[in-house]
Design a protein around this nucleic acid. Structure first.
Length: 560
RNA sequence: CGGGGUGUAGCGCAGCUUGGUAGCGCGCAGCGUUCGGGACGCUGAGGUCCCGGGUUCGAGUCCCGGCACCCCGACCA
């Protein structure tokens, strides 16, 4: 396509469509076109080689999975809002698999009876269905996508540590080989317990994840999980708290406008209702609450703003809620300092000034705020920078969580029954492919790294109507294919401009032009997509020369 | 879920305010001339104007109700 469809916003999404890598079918559903499928298969092969290298074995589970296993883990209900479901004609319920932990756990309990069979690592490439709240940017967040998901089963947590390390190293190799620089960052483990999880993130503004990276040390964390060093603040005393009239100022913004005080002079208090009940979160007016941290605090599940009845029970007023004499579980964020604040007065149109933590109110001290750009690193005290990234993979130790729920045990050396220790390791193939495009492109199109390029060489014939030129090109293409080079042969009857522009757009690593002009000097022209110089190669030596260049490029990529 | 936006030919868009029977560029087909950076000429094909109701002599345009897609936010007291 010359022009990108209006729906495509960011560069890689536009190139995905313009270069016919993929075509949309519905919101978040894409068909991989021939070029896209070839690239995806190359990516899969890299992943396959690295999984095999660490002794992880390929298998394949179905896409359609029966409800019974999900019921065992409790996720049949939990995943309802984000999954696609169906029934067979007998009325049996199925889920288009969201992931495969339950199914692998099921097989494990049937197949692995003894510690002598452990450890085991398996993986597959399989479609996942996720009814995303908001699919976006082409393959970056789709509702159906192929994931490589791997699972490790170990006898204990030491074994899990070893498997996890092996996967971590494999992931680093996979992304390097695939042509992107992915950094691993600490991430939230969500509801499954365990506390170790890493995401592999490729830094780009096209990403939707927010990451905090220390400029001085190697601390890197997803915003869901990031913490900061809070400088010690000397206590500041204050006179007894007193009421101030603040009619019509139910927000921090309105309060700063009315009083002229900066946002951090206020306390904001939020009454939230989660699965674990109602909680009042207290934090400085210039800080934002972190949803993931609060969810964890409230025992998982959704958290939402508390309703009117909850305010009545807490003796609070919406817009004027404060921690002083509040009848609720109070959580005081670690950002709150030992100094006087202005806080809600729990009466309409009233705030309190000179409110002190410890004297006027108290509560559990928990970190529930967002870390922001410029905050201090929790490890070294350096500056944290906020960046965006695409999560191309994640690795996660969840231990015996599903084993215990699904009664998946083995017989240990001492004769006892023990649960398997699990880890799971995912890579989104399509997302990775589009991220490769996002990172490897220029103003004219994609610049595929050779190891993931749909083809290695792009042969252009100019003009196609010239018998002699066409014959020379066909000979060359045949020779190259016999030598094992993957060739895209542009034998369309198009003008030079169109062919060159399309070659740049598709972005194969080597472009070979066979033309009337080049044949005049008994040569063909060879140009690398990533370079600017073209060279003339003698026709009779062309296949060997080009093949040599392709081989060298492959080897360079392989050595990454 | 909330907010914003957009639906007119394969793609990008105009037409809508002021209702009169649909247009531009690219692409596509045929013929001819071209032939190393998105060629040129001539001829032509291609449209339930997202869907359903309503108003009107008449609706792409006005009104009501849906649907689809895109973007932003994931809620801030």
């Amino acid at each position: 396509m010359r022009e990108a469809p209006a729906e495509a916003q960011n560069a890689s999404h536009q190139l995905l469509l313009r270069a016919a890598i993929a075509r949309p079918l519905a919101a978040g559903l894409y068909t991989l076109m021939p070029l896209g499928l070839r690239a995806a298969k190359k990516i899969e092969q890299i992943i396959r080689e690295e999984m095999d290298r660490i002794g992880c074995q390929e298998m394949e589970l179905p896409v359609l999975t029966p409800a019974e296993y999900w019921r065992e883990s409790g996720r049949w209900d939990a995943l309802e809002p984000v999954t696609f479901r169906t029934k067979d004609h007998g009325g049996h319920e199925f889920m288009i698999s969201y992931t495969h932990e339950e199914l692998v756990t099921h097989h494990a309990r049937n197949e692995i009876l003894s510690y002598r069979q452990l450890p085991v690592m398996v993986y597959h490439f399989q479609s996942k269905g996720r009814d995303e709240a908001r699919p976006r940017a082409g393959l970056l967040r789709a509702r159906e996508f192929v994931m490589k998901d791997a699972y490790s089963l170990d006898a204990d947590s030491d074994g899990l540590d070893r498997s996890y390390r092996a996967q971590h190293e494999a992931y680093a190799r996979i992304f390097r080989r695939a042509g992107v620089e992915a950094i691993s960052v600490e991430s939230d483990t969500g509801a499954m317990g365990g506390d170790v999880a890493h995401e592999f993130q490729v830094l780009t503004e096209a990403g939707e994840d927010r990451l905090l990276l220390c400029e001085a040390c190697d601390y890197r964390a997803n915003m869901e999980k990031a913490v900061r060093r809070i400088p010690d603040a000397a206590p500041v005393d204050a006179p007894a708290a007193s009421e101030i009239a603040t009619p019509g100022t139910a927000t921090i913004e309105a309060l700063t406008a009315m009083t002229g005080e900066p946002p951090f002079a206020f306390l904001k208090t939020m009454l939230l209702r989660g699965t674990g009940g109602v909680v009042a979160i207290v934090l400085p007016g210039d800080r934002e609450v972190n949803d993931a941290k609060v969810r964890k605090l409230l025992g998982g599940g959704d958290t939402r703003f508390a309703g009117g009845d909850d305010f009545t029970a807490a003796r609070a007023v919406p817009g004027y809620i404060g921690p002083v004499r509040l009848r609720a579980r109070v959580v005081v964020d670690t950002s709150v300092e030992p100094r006087p604040y202005i806080a809600g007065g729990n009466k309409p149109d009233v705030h309190l000034r000179d409110v002190l933590l410890g004297r006027d109110f108290d509560g559990e001290r928990v970190d529930v705020h967002d870390v922001r750009d410029g905050d201090l690193c929790p490890r070294c005290g350096g500056r944290l920078a906020l960046r965006r990234g695409v999560e191309v993979g994640n690795i996660f130790k969840f231990g015996p969580y599903y084993s215990e729920k699904m009664d998946a045990t083995f017989l240990a050396e001492d004769g006892s029954r023990r649960p398997f220790y699990f880890g799971s390791y995912g890579i989104g193939v399509g997302r990775l492919m589009q991220t490769i495009i996002e990172i490897n492109r220029d103003g004219r199109g994609i610049v595929w790294p050779i190891q993931v390029a749909p083809f290695e060489a792009h042969v252009i014939v100019l003009p196609q109507s010239d018998q002699e030129v066409r014959a020379a090109a066909e000979r060359l293409v045949g020779d190259l294919e016999r030598l094992g080079v993957e060739v895209l042969h542009d034998d369309r009857d198009e003008s030079a401009g169109v062919k060159f522009a399309d070659a740049d757009l598709i972005g194969l690593p080597f472009r070979v032009t066979v033309s009337r002009r080049s044949l005049g000097s008994h040569a063909v022209e060879l140009k690398e997509r990533s370079g600017s110089e073209a060279e003339l190669v003698d026709v009779d030596a062309a296949a060997e020369r080009i093949c040599g260049a392709v081989r060298r490029a492959r080897e360079t990529a392989r050595a990454l």
